[in-house]
Each structure stands twice: as structure tokens, then as C-alpha cells.
């Protein structure tokens, strides 16, 4: 919970968190090493220096660290796991649905655990999705369309198999489709991070929500265009958020564009923890004001009301969370007590 100076409470949902294992012991090959090192460069290139982690801690951190960084010092009330498995780089997977589920069990009401699928896995993958959906009560998936799989260098949401998977999501009640359209995570050479396929998928599956993570950076111009056409397309702010510190002017320009093209109900906060810590992101965001020239040019506002929507209300709607009821539910729970002790 973030408290404003005037005492108003803001319920925060971090829509994009990870508990990963990038350690040497878990790496399968050079790719595994390079992948986590690249994340580390993202971490140090955009975090304030006082928030730098050591490389070792960054490779693998304990769930207690996560609990502390998110809920005790980071103002977060709920977090959504967006796992990436990278089975070809890491023995036991980089992210792990099972480990996430353990935390969900230990801290009821604090986490939502998503999974991922790859339509190139065909029937077998469909079955597995069904199994996971039932076992873990899955409400959302995180997709990487640029991921390599055998000879394939990526897929599109419009591919026939991808459509079958989306139909399966609909059938299983998985309504939130988070799509990583952003900086590349695996070697690619086509425009697999092109956002155009979102357009068609979103108009075919109007009852599903498409949250475009990282706003389609590095293709934000196409993303804005699609998002104006399709009302079930949302902007996930992970990776965009940390620019608030390192490049505030650009952060302001991008926020101006997003608010102009999408309106304030379709922009969603995410830290991409542990690449960046929610504490400083949220503090800076609450302090942040759009410069006058951008306000004048785009005619948009980023006031307290807008910030509340971005930090929690918008994503709460997508996951069917009643914020007032959830506050009651979490009051006095393990994490609440932990936070009290610390303060």
C-alpha cells in the first residue's frame, strides 16, 4: 500500500514479477550465462546506484528477498508472476510455475501465478495447458512470440495453432494474454517482435485481454496505432517504468503518447522485478508530473486518479479483483504483520 502525503491509500498490484534461477548451477550452456548477464545490464543501466544488486545475488535470490522487496519495503499489495521457462538455456527452467505456486500457497491472496505456452508444441502442449489451468487455477499466460523452437524462429498469434491455443484459453477461463513484445530475449532475425499480429488476434478474440508487455518497445509506434483500434489491448509498463529515473524526459514523452492514444484505463504498472525494484519505481512515479509542454501538446493529465488506475485499478479489473474486498482479506495476514514489525 502506498500512502500519499495527504494520507490517501493506494492499492498497488505489480503485474510483472519473477522469481528466477539464473545461477551457474542451473545454466545449461553459454546462452544461459549470456541471458542472465544481459538482464543484469538492464538492471544496472537503468536503476539508481543505491539499488544495484551484486551479480551473484541477481543470478539467484531467495523467496524471502522477493517478499521483502515487494511487500515489505516496495508498497506492493499483490504481484503477478509472468514466468519464462527458457528450457534450452536452464536445466530446471529460468522461471518455474511450481515454485511460484508454493509462494501462492504460503501467502494466500498475495500472488497470481501465470503460465506460458508455445503453440508449436501442438496437441501435447494443449493438453498440458489444460492440466496446468486446472491444477493452478490459471487466469493468465505470458507469451514469447520471438522464442526459437527447433527450426522455427518465432511464431505469430495469427498462426492456426496459436488460434487453437487462444480458443483453449477461452474455454478454460484464461482471459489475460500477456504478450512479450519488446526487447528480444532469444536470438531472432525476423521481426518476431512485430506487434501487428496482436491486431488480428485481438479482433478475433474480443473476450480476451491482450496486455502488450513493454508496450511493444521497440515498436511503440505500431503498438499505439493498434491499441487505438482494439479496445481489448492494454499497455504493460514493464521496462518503460525505469526510464522514469534514467531518462525522465523520455518517460514523460512515452506516457504522454500512451495516455493520448490509449486513455488512462488501459495502462498497467509492472516492475519486471527483480530487474528493477518496485520501491523506487513507485516512489518516483508518485512524485512524477508531466512537463507543461507535453501536457499542452497531448492534452492529457497524469494526476492522482490516473496514477491509482495505472498502479492497481486497471489490472484489478482484468483479474476480477475487488480492491476493497481484497484489502479486507489481506489485513493482518503474514505479510501485513511482517511489514508492521519492520516499520
Amino acid at each position: 500500500m502506498y500512502k500519499t502525503k495527504s494520507g490517501e491509500e493506494i492499492f498497488v498490484i505489480d503485474s510483472h514479477i519473477h522469481l528466477w534461477d539464473g545461477s551457474k548451477e542451473n545454466q545449461l550452456n553459454e546462452y544461459g550465462a549470456q541471458f542472465i548477464d544481459c538482464f543484469y545490464d538492464y538492471h544496472t543501466s537503468l536503476s539508481p546506484e543505491e539499488y544495484y544488486w551484486s551479480r551473484n545475488k541477481f543470478y539467484k535470490y531467495e523467496s524471502d528477498t522477493l517478499i521483502h522487496d515487494l511487500f515489505v519495503k516496495g508498497y506492493v499489495d499483490m504481484g503477478i508472476f509472468q514466468p519464462v521457462f527458457l528450457k534450452e538455456f536452464y536445466k530446471d527452467g529460468f522461471g518455474n510455475v511450481e515454485k511460484n505456486a508454493e509462494l501462492e500457497e504460503q501467502y494466500p491472496g498475495r500472488f497470481i501465478g501465470n503460465t506460458s505456452f508455445d503453440p508449436r508444441e501442438g496437441e501435447k502442449g494443449l493438453k498440458y495447458l489444460e492440466y496446468e489451468a486446472k491444477k493452478y487455477n490459471i487466469q493468465g499466460v505470458k507469451l514469447y512470440t520471438a522464442e526459437w523452437n527447433g527450426n522455427s524462429k518465432g511464431y505469430k498469434l495469427t498462426d492456426p495453432w496459436a488460434q487453437r491455443y487462444l480458443e483453449k484459453c477461452r474455454e478454460l477461463g484464461i482471459r489475460n494474454i500477456h504478450v512479450h513484445k519488446g526487447p528480444t530475449i532469444t536470438p531472432l532475425n525476423r521481426d518476431a517482435f512485430d506487434v501487428a499480429d496482436i491486431d488480428e488476434a485481438a479482433s478475433l478474440f474480443t473476450d480476451l485481454n491482450f496486455i502488450v508487455e513493454h508496450c511493444g518497445l521497440p515498436r511503440i509506434e505500431d503498438f499505439c496505432w493498434i491499441a487505438t483500434q482494439e479496445k481489448n489491448v492494454y499497455a504493460g509498463l514493464s521496462v518503460v517504468m525505469p526510464f522514469i529515473y534514467a531518462r525522465p524526459r523520455y518517460f514523460a514523452e512515452i506516457m504522454g503518447e500512451l495516455l493520448y492514444w490509449l486513455d488512462e484505463d488501459r495502462i498497467i504498472f509492472g516492475s519486471d522485478y527483480a530487474i528493477w525494484e518496485p520501491k523506487w519505481l513507485i516512489e518516483k512515479f508518485m512524485e512524477f508530473e508531466l512537463p507543461e509542454d507535453i501536457k499542452k501538446e497531448t492534452k492529457v493529465e497524469l494526476n492522482l486518479n490516473t496514477k491509482k488506475k495505472i498502479l492497481g485499478e486497471n489490472i484489478a479489473r482484468l483479474y476480477g479483483i475487488n480492491i476493497e474486498a481484497q484489502k479486507e482479506r489481506l489485513r493482518g495476514d503474514r505479510i501485513d504483520r511482517l511489514a508492521m514489525q519492520e516499520s
Binding site: P218, F243, I254, E257
Partner: peptide, 9 residues
């Protein structure tokens, strides 16, 4: 903006 944002990154 997109190009400049990417360049910063």
C-alpha cells in the same frame, strides 16, 4: 520517439 527511446536503451 520510438527510435530515440530505443537509442537510450
Amino acid at each position: 520517439l520510438n527510435m530515440e527511446f530505443n537509442a537510450h536503451q
